[in-house]
Amino acid sequence: MSWIPSCSDVARAVSDDSYNESSPSRRVMLRLHMAVCWFCRRYAAQIRWIDRAARETWGVPAPGDADLKRRLIARLRS
């Protein structure tokens, strides 16, 4: 494998969570690529947005949860 990561290498590392788990030398090369590649920076920003949007969509209690909790407590204690 070339020691210079390509855009597809960087995009894969960003999306499969290996970007920050790579060896120190590979991490340096990934970051250098990101510093000079506008397209990859845009891609990474989109992936970060997806993660944030997912947390705001699926990571917050829904309005009906409070009522569900009351019913669950009643049922589980019986």
Binding site: C7, R42, W49
Partner: peptide
């Protein structure tokens, strides 16, 4: 995914989509 890149692993075109937008109801 592979189709987004040329033979040298460089993007064929700029990836597009929401990046900085607030997560409104439409985007959710």
């Amino acid at each position: 995914f592979s189709g987004r890149f040329g033979s040298l692993g460089v993007w064929n075109s700029l990836p597009r989509g929401p990046e900085e937008e607030a997560v409104n109801d439409e985007l959710k």
